[in-house]
C-alpha cells in the first residue's frame, strides 16, 4: 500500500516564479487495485505520480511504501526501489532512438547485471505477450504510435514490478488503441499488480475495471 501524508510540492521555491503544484495531499492507494488520478491540466496529477513513483521528492510531507517511509531515503535507495517496485508508462513512449526494440525493452534491467540469455528470454516473452515478437529487432523509429506504446509497456514490465504507473497513457492513442491499452491494464490487475494511472480521458476513468478515482484540482484532492 502507498500512503501520502500531507504532501506538498513547490517549484522554484523562493523565486518570484514560485509555484505550488501540490497542497497538503493525503492519499492512500490500495494494493492490487486500479487507481486513476483525474483532473484538468495543471491540477498536479503528473507531479503526484512522480512523487509516488520515487522520481521526485515532495517539498514537505511523507510518502510510505508498504509502511516504510521512503521520502528521506538517499537517491541510490530510491533508484533501487524505483527499479524493482515500479514500472513506468509515459505519455510519450520515451523509447531511445537508434537502438532496437529488444534493446529498449532490456534497458531498465542493465544496472541489475542479470544474465544476458535470461534477460533476453524475458524481453522476448514480454514482446510476444503484446504481439510484438516480429518487431524485436526493428529500430524504434519504424514503429507505429500503438506499437511504440506497447513496447514501452513491455519495457515497464521487464523487472517484474508490483506497481505500474502510467501517465496519460491514452493521450496519444486513438479509441481502438485506448481500449486495447485498458485490456492490458485489466491483465495487470488479474496478475495482482497495483496500477496507478493519471488521465482526463473518460474512457479510462469510467472504465469498469477502475477501483478508485481521485479527483485533483489546483493541487488538492477534491471530495468524490
Amino acid at each position: 500500500m502507498i500512503e501520502l501524508v500531507n504532501v506538498k510540492k513547490v517549484f522554484n521555491a523562493g523565486n518570484p516564479s514560485e509555484f505550488s503544484a501540490l497542497n497538503s495531499v493525503n492519499l492512500e492507494i490500495a494494493q492490487n487495485k486500479v487507481t486513476v488520478l483525474k483532473g484538468p491540466s495543471g491540477s498536479g496529477k503528473t507531479t503526484l505520480l512522480s512523487i509516488v513513483g520515487c522520481m521526485s521528492r515532495p517539498s514537505a510531507g511523507r510518502v510510505k511504501l508498504n509502511g516504510r517511509e521512503i521520502t528521506s531515503l538517499p537517491e541510490r535507495f530510491l533508484t533501487d526501489i524505483r527499479r524493482t517496485t515500479f514500472g513506468f508508462i509515459f505519455q510519450q513512449p520515451n523509447l531511445i532512438k537508434g537502438i532496437s526494440v529488444l534493446e529498449n525493452v532490456m534497458l531498465p534491467a542493465y544496472p541489475l547485471g542479470e544474465k544476458r540469455a535470461h534477460l533476453k528470454m524475458k524481453a522476448l516473452n514480454g514482446l510476444a505477450g503484446l504481439n510484438l515478437s516480429s518487431k524485436a529487432s526493428s529500430q524504434v523509429e519504424w514503429l507505429s504510435g500503438g506499437e511504440a506504446q506497447r513496447v514501452s509497456i513491455v519495457r515497464a514490465l521487464i523487472n517484474d514490478p508490483s506497481i505500474i504507473i502510467a501517465d496519460e497513457p491514452t493521450a496519444h492513442l486513438d479509441t481502438k488503441l485506448s481500449y486495447r491499452f485498458m485490456e492490458i491494464v485489466e491483465k495487470f490487475k488479474a496478475e495482482g499488480k497495483t496500477v496507478i494511472i493519471t488521465s482526463h480521458d473518460p474512457l479510462v476513468y469510467d472504465s469498469a475495471m477502475v477501483d478508485h478515482v481521485v479527483n485533483l484540482r489546483d493541487g488538492k484532492i477534491e471530495d468524490e
Binding site: R76, T79, L95, P108, P111
Partner: peptide, 15 residues
C-alpha cells in the same frame, strides 16, 4: 532526454 529516460527506467546517476 536520453539521460532522463535512463534515470526514469531505473538507472542510477552513477550508471
Amino acid at each position: 532526454r536520453e539521460i532522463g529516460i535512463l534515470k526514469a527506467v531505473g538507472w542510477e546517476t552513477s550508471d
